[in-house]
């Protein structure tokens, strides 16, 4: 079975052309025109959601946070402009990646591939079986993709988890933004760093005792991030 993509786009011609091109790339495309419809048709067989933020009715941000509250289904948001607040809002709402219009099937396919690659259980390279890493009072189990503090499980998305693992594996060395984008998002980064910044913010909100005064994920001015020991 091919990868199943849910395409949420209100403009019919774009939806048709994109659906056609994605199908041509080998994807199994489910098309919907509204957020309500999208929330109805979501099923466990879906692999990724491609979500336009500008929708009639329930808007994309809300659809995004609803989907995120239900589970860890990868979400790529589509936005008209890369430098608007909706990109941030969408990423804060839990999207894993974003693309700017006009949407191009080939580019989308690359993003989807990268996103799904990092979703797959990372058995081969990272962790033989289940190894445990510790940072501060966090216990990270690489095999089960779980993070615990004092026995309580913290719920991280796959993307957030990968980000944390990349930082922790550097053992306090600086990891540049480019390296993080390359390793976590997996495509040749050449653009902006908003994606990374928002994910770091999300990660901090989940793992830092005080997100405004981070002690685990530290910013290195002008270059990247490192993990605090």
């Amino acid at each position: 079975m091919g990868t199943r993509v849910l395409l949420v786009e209100d403009d019919e011609r774009i939806r048709q052309a994109l659906g056609l091109a994605l199908a041509d790339e080998g994807y199994d495309v489910v098309e919907t025109a509204t957020g309500e419809e999208a929330l109805e048709v979501v099923d466990p067989d879906l692999d990724v959601v491609l979500l336009d933020l500008m929708l009639p009715g329930i808007d994309g941000i809300e659809v995004c946070s609803t989907l995120r509250s239900r589970g860890d289904l990868p979400i790529i948001i589509a936005t008209a402009r890369s430098d608007t607040a909706d990109v941030i809002a969408g990423l804060e709402a839990g999207a894993d990646d974003y693309v700017t219009k006009p949407l191009i099937a080939g580019e989308l396919a690359a993003r989807i591939k990268a996103l799904l690659r990092r979703r797959r259980p990372s058995g081969s390279e990272d962790a033989p079986g289940s190894s445990e890493l510790r940072v501060g009072d966090l216990v990270i189990s690489t095999g089960r993709e779980e993070v615990e503090r004092d026995g309580h499980r913290l719920h991280l998305t796959h993307t957030e988890f990968r980000l944390l693992i990349e930082l922790v594996s550097a053992r306090g060395d600086v990891v540049t933004r480019e390296q993080l984008l390359q390793r976590v998002w997996g495509y040749d980064y050449f653009g902006d760093t908003r994606l990374l910044d928002v994910h770091v913010r999300r990660l901090r909100r989940k793992i830092e005792p005080d997100p405004d005064d981070p002690t685990l994920v530290l910013t290195v001015r002008g270059s990247g991030y490192r993990v605090g020991q």
Binding site: Q16, A17, L18, D24, P102, L103, A105, G106
Partner: peptide, 20 residues
């Protein structure tokens, strides 16, 4: 430019199918 992007999206993706 913004308005042009909608037909542009259709054109790009249609051309991409043709190119393949």
């Amino acid at each position: 430019s913004h308005e042009l992007r909608t037909p542009l999206t259709t054109m790009i993706n249609a051309v991409e199918v043709l190119r393949r």
